[in-house]
């Protein structure tokens, strides 16, 4: 420290200036993205004004723009997400638990880890092609003209599984599950890793088995993080179009999977739930995509915008749930 005070002072003002400049830069970055988002939202909402109403939710697609609705696509997306969650949560969380809690660190697990990160970066269209081969066509193992159906009796009703799955909800959901699994696994691993090791040690030292430790200590502590990751992945899946284009979400469908349009339908006919996974379907992003391709300007502009508003609404709801879970549990568990 052999500078004179004045030298130090002059440097100080430069440092302050740089600091201010950087702050300004960050602020500009934030504002730019906010403005773009706002313009997008406002234009969509403006165009959809008067088009989003109960009829829009209740109606299926129609050739007349004023009669067109998003009903079939909404329920298609709903079931896609439910089925995707059913497939991806147990597999994803199970894999994360295995990798974090059980697997020894060796070349093999490192290999898996690196490739998980790679898989998370694979373009979604590639998953679509995979889904087409594996689920929709099942490697052409079954002859299409024969209509192979696997029938399983369940109590009073029966479950009919078409083989191959064809362009049904289950193919779409399995494809989306593959798509989000890497992210689900990685984010679950991160939440498991954030559970302090001392908690595991304390549990093991009390004579708990690995499984008891995982179930009673590690999982409860990690669940908020896992749930957040899962919901965010699912809300990515709900907006996906490319892979579903490949596995054949149909363009124009005028029925809902299993004929279900609310909880009342399920209560009236619970067996309809069994039809859902093997039903043809469309989904919201597909429906919007198709509307935009229409020649009629009303479809391109207004109906599509109305669809986007509904899709964004669902997305917002899911993300808000994720934030809520995170906040709620953050207050409950402190280390």
């Amino acid at each position: 420290m052999n500078q004179t005070p004045s030298e130090f002072d002059s440097r100080l003002s430069t440092r302050h200036r740089n600091s201010k400049l950087f702050e300004l830069f960050c602020l500009t970055a934030v504002l730019t993205s906010l403005i773009i988002l706002a313009v997008l939202l406002l234009s969509v909402i403006y165009k959809s004004w008067g088009w989003v109403d109960l009829d829009f939710l209740r109606n299926h697609h129609s050739r007349k723009p004023e009669d067109a609705g998003i009903n079939a696509a909404f329920w298609g997306s709903f079931w896609l997400i439910i089925l995707t969650a059913l497939f991806s949560i147990p597999i994803g969380v199970g894999a994360a638990l295995y990798l974090e809690e059980y697997a020894r660190k060796n070349k093999f697990t490192t290999f898996i880890q690196v490739n998980l990160a790679n898989l998370a970066g694979v373009p979604s269209i590639v998953y679509g092609i995979l889904g087409l081969t594996v689920f929709v066509r099942m490697f052409d193992m079954f002859r299409a003209e024969e209509d192979t159906v696997l029938t399983i009796s369940l109590f009073v009703t029966q479950l009919s599984i078409p083989l191959p799955f064809g362009t049904t909800l289950i193919s779409g959901a399995l494809t989306l599950s593959l798509l989000i699994l890497p992210v689900v696994i990685i984010s679950s691993q991160e939440s498991l890793r954030s559970v302090p090791p001392s908690l595991r040690h304390a549990s093991l030292a009390l004579g708990a088995t690995e499984w008891q430790t995982v179930r009673s200590q590690v999982l409860p502590a990690a669940i908020p993080g896992i749930a957040t990751g899962v919901i965010l992945s699912l809300s990515r899946a709900i907006g996906e179009t490319a892979p579903l284009l490949m596995v054949g979400a149909a363009s124009f469908i005028t029925f809902t999977p299993g004929g279900i349009e609310g909880i009342g339908d399920v209560i009236a006919n619970p067996a309809s739930l069994l039809e859902v996974p093997f039903s043809k379907y469309t989904c919201m992003p597909m429906q919007i995509y198709n509307w935009v391709k229409f020649a009629k300007i009303e479809f391109q502009e207004y109906v599509a915008s109305a669809g986007i508003v509904i899709l964004l609404g669902v997305l917002l709801l899911m993300n808000a749930t994720a934030v809520y879970i995170r906040m709620r549990f953050q207050n409950k568990i402190q280390w």
């Binding site: 040690h201 409950k332 568990i333």
Partner: peptide
């Protein structure tokens, strides 16, 4: 018993 107390949450 560990050095850092480790109550479960």
């Amino acid at each position: 018993v560990f050095q850092k107390s480790t109550p479960f949450p």
